[in-house]
Structure formats: structure tokens, C-alpha cells
Design a protein around this nucleic acid. Structure first.
Lengths: 257, 257
DNA sequence: GTCTGTATGTACGAAACCGCACACAAGACT
DNA sequence: AGTCTTGTGTGCGGTTTCGTACATACAGAC
């Protein structure tokens, strides 16, 4: 489950810390303090990192995995609040002071993440330095994603939401493949499995995606973006804005406005 | 619009700082620093405190007013992300580091709020003392509300959501009256006005509420809670948990678990 | 090859909600 | 008093999604 950490690795399948964009963004000084405590951890599909109400003992920096923050209602129906991949951290409630969240964190796409003891993260956060700023800034981006999800749930069709969901997932993985059944996607979107089947069929027959028993491949990403609602672009822009600010070394000129 | 501030007031219509629960929760030391900069401000119905993307020059601590954080989509359709009343602050993006949010803050129920210059709040936040902790903790509660709203949008009927919305609003006002047209409620919930008319008619004919051209009165609150989905209770519990922690003087025993 | 569980496809009536159109009534304005 | 604006009530056809039931097809186990 855990291995000794490595700054870099020759095996492209084994991620290094810098594959997480938050870990990559911090300065050398903080890296020196944090990196020794990072434990590379395998996250199998469906693994629950936190259950609703759990006290968090670790936080996770995904590298090539994706974690969904899922809200589960009393009657068992669920809705995805946000997605966390290599651009983020799972466990923000830790430093926000609540200790626990009323949502479940579940591995949506298997891979690896760097695990960090809550105390270590809290200690670094409480130094009120760069990490503090970075984490708050990330939380802000996460809030944007949640707000957009709420609005998207209200106003957009399953077809559009599936496109959004696929794009958000693809952004967090390398390559154009994703292992995910329609049943699980339906849980994330909070809709029936049949609804996803229908939406995915349309995309497949239009040649935009290709799927087969839990394996999805995106063939025509531009068209996927075209069929998507605005929600994807807003979330992505906010996420990019975060890392623009934290790029090292600081750029003199920003390539995009 | 602004008046000289008063620690207390004899006129029950003019709120004092302590009518905002965040301002009430902070210690005497911080009060000394903050209170002189607070400006009592009138918030008329429909006033926009921030437009999407605005840089925030002030933050607001509502007393007897309610502010909605509303997400407005490209096509003009909208959805309420969260509500802020005397339990909170409008403008969290300021200290979260994003400077702006992609949502609109609009006065949903007219009243007063204490306005504070962004620089002053940021300065106090950056002392990393009690205010810092309190604001982050509040943000966590707000995140919970947003997550719950997202899930509620997905799974619950207009009838249930109207109950939730009424309860959340009533909690933030004294009395059992609310001035609000069905049209505006529809904007908040992101549904048609007719849908609200129908849901409100049911409540009225059941004797739970009484309304008349923009004036709503809650007659049977227990029944309102009974018809509501779980979402209200979750949000309220999280909000209460925040102030339990910050009650002064600290209690030896907590009356509720 | 057969079996079995899992993933996906299809169908159909019901419910919720939408968009629209219009009626009506209470205040506000002149 | 008459007119206009605003807030609410109602009806109807259309769309989306739901709930449910069942069929099909693939993959791995034996």
C-alpha cells in the first residue's frame, strides 16, 4: 500500500510528488519539511477515504487518481459535489476547522495519491506561510466548482452533465481513457443508470466517445466540449487561475489574460 | 445610508453589532480593533452587494437582513447557492484569496448589515488569531450549505425545497413574517414562478403559511419542518455547531451532543 | 464449452417540471 | 374614476426524468 517516497522515478507508472500540482507549486523550503512525510498510496476504485462525519486522520494529494466528493442522502440517493484530482487535495475540512465533512470521499478512478498525516498538514498550514495561502486559494476554487455543480444540477440536461463530467475527469488523467461503468457515473451525477446509458449512446453513435463494459475512450474532445454546458469551462478557468498565480518561477508575463 | 455605530441601542429597529452572531462571538480584544470600522448600512431589497467577478471592497455582516448568493448562468437562469443572514458574513472570497467570486450577492430580505472595509477585515484575518479561525470555520459551514443545496437541487421536489427555503429564511429573521414575492423565490430556487405558486398554494390551503402579494407569514412552523426534506436540518445543525464552539464564555458542558 | 455475474440496451407508464398564454385581482398612479 | 403595473391563479401540451421490468451481451471462472 505504501512505499518509500521518491523525488522522481524512472517508471512512468509510479508517480512522483510533483505529479500533484499543489505539491509541485510549493517552494523548496516547504517541500523540505513536507516531502519526508508523504506516503505514496495506492487508491483502488471505490475506496472510501472518508465517510460522512469521519474525523480525518490523513489528507490525500492525488496524482493519477480521481476522488469524488459525494453527498449521500438519507434515502441512499447521492450527488457528486466536486471532483478532486492532481490539481487538489482531499480533506480540506481538516484545516478549515470543522474536522469532519458531511460528505463521502470515494475513489472514482483508481491510481495513486500521496497521503499525509493530518497533524503534519495542520502544522504546515498553521505556519501561515505559502501552504496556508495555497490551500485557502484551492478551497476557493473548490467552492466555485461546488457552486457550479449546484447550478448545473438545476438547469442542465443529463446529456450536458455527462459531457461536463467526462471533461472534468479527462483533465485529471493522462491519456484519453477512463475506467468507469455507467452505473457509477449515474451515482455521481445523481441520476438513473438508464439515463446515463441513453446519453452515452448518443455520444457513442456520434463518434465522440467509445465505451465498452466500463472502459470509456474519448475520441473527439472538441465536440465533447461543444455539447457541454458552460459549467465545465467556468470550473476549469477557476482551477487554472489558481495555478497561474502559483507558478514557479513567477512569470513576468502571463501568456493568457 | 451609514450612521455612527453604537454598541447598543434603545430603538429595537436599529440593530447593534452583536445582532450578527459572528461579530458577537469574537473576543473583547478583537472587538476593540474591529468595531470602530463597522458602518451600519441599510440594505434595500434587491440591492446587489457584489456582481459576479467583482473585486470586493467591503464585506458585510448582516443583522436583520438576508443576502442570497446567487449563481447566474449565461442564459439568465439562476440558482441560489447559499443564504447568509445574521449567522454569517458576505464576502468570504476576500480572505480565501480569490478576490472575487463567480456569484452574485443580492439582498433577499431588506434590513441592515455592518459593512467593513476589505482591508480591515483582511488585516484582522492575517493576524491569524481568533477571527481567522472563526471565519474559516464559518466558511466550512457555508460549504456544507452549498453541498446540501446541490444535492437538494438534484433530488427534491419544489414543494420540499420551498419549505427548506422558508425555514432557512425564517431562522435569519425575527418574527414569522417575510416580504418576498413568489417570482423572487422562484429565481432563488431556480424554478418557474408558477411552480412556486402551486407549492405555496398547497401550504396556504393546509394552513401552514399565509401570503398576500409579497408578504408571507408562517403559521405552523412544525408542520413546515415536517414537510421539508432533510436538507434544512443538516444545514441548521452545521450552523449551530459553529456557534456552539464559539460561545463565550466557554461552557463546561455542552447541552447537546 | 458452460456457467454466472456484470454491464448495457430497451420499453412504457407515471411524475415533475417547463414554456407559454391568459385571466384576474389588488394596489399604485394620475 | 379610470388606467397601469404588479402579483397571483390556472390550464395545456411538451419534454425530461423517473421507476420498474426485462432482455441481451460480454468476460471471467471452472
Amino acid at each position: 500500500m505504501s512505499r518509500t517516497i521518491q523525488q522522481t522515478t524512472d517508471d512512468p507508472e509510479i508517480p512522483c510528488q510533483q505529479d500533484n500540482r499543489l505539491l509541485k507549486a510549493i517552494s523548496a523550503e516547504i517541500r523540505g519539511r513536507i516531502y519526508p512525510y508523504l506516503k505514496l498510496t495506492e487508491l483502488p476504485l471505490g475506496m472510501v477515504l472518508y465517510e460522512s462525519g469521519d474525523v480525518m486522520e490523513n489528507v490525500y494529494f492525488p496524482t493519477n487518481s480521481i476522488v469524488s466528493l459525494l453527498y449521500v442522502m438519507e434515502d441512499g440517493r447521492s450527488a457528486e459535489i466536486s471532483v478532486v484530482g492532481n490539481e487538489g487535495i482531499v480533506g480540506i475540512a481538516l484545516f478549515m476547522g470543522g474536522l469532519s465533512t458531511p460528505s463521502r470521499a470515494i475513489v472514482q478512478s483508481a491510481g495513486h495519491a500521496y497521503r499525509l498525516d493530518s497533524k503534519q498538514l495542520k502544522a504546515e498550514f498553521d505556519r501561515h506561510g505559502e501552504m496556508h495561502h495555497l490551500l485557502l486559494r484551492y478551497t476557493q476554487a473548490l467552492i466555485t466548482q461546488m457552486a457550479q455543480t449546484a447550478a448545473c444540477n438545476r438547469h442542465h440536461t443529463i446529456d450536458q452533465q455527462l459531457c461536463r463530467w467526462l471533461l472534468l475527469s479527462m483533465d485529471r488523467l493522462k491519456g484519453n481513457k477512463l475506467d468507469m461503468t455507467q452505473e457509477l457515473i449515474a451515482n455521481m451525477l445523481g441520476v438513473r443508470r438508464e439515463g446515463v446509458t441513453e446519453a452515452a449512446s448518443k455520444l457513442q453513435s456520434a463518434g465522440i466517445i467509445q465505451y465498452h463494459r466500463g472502459h470509456i475512450r474519448v475520441l473527439d474532445r472538441p465536440e465533447l466540449e461543444h455539447r457541454c454546458c458552460e459549467c465545465y469551462a467556468v470550473v476549469k478557468k477557476e482551477s487554472d487561475r489558481l495555478f497561474e498565480e502559483f507558478s514557479y518561477p513567477p512569470r513576468q508575463q502571463r501568456p493568457y489574460r
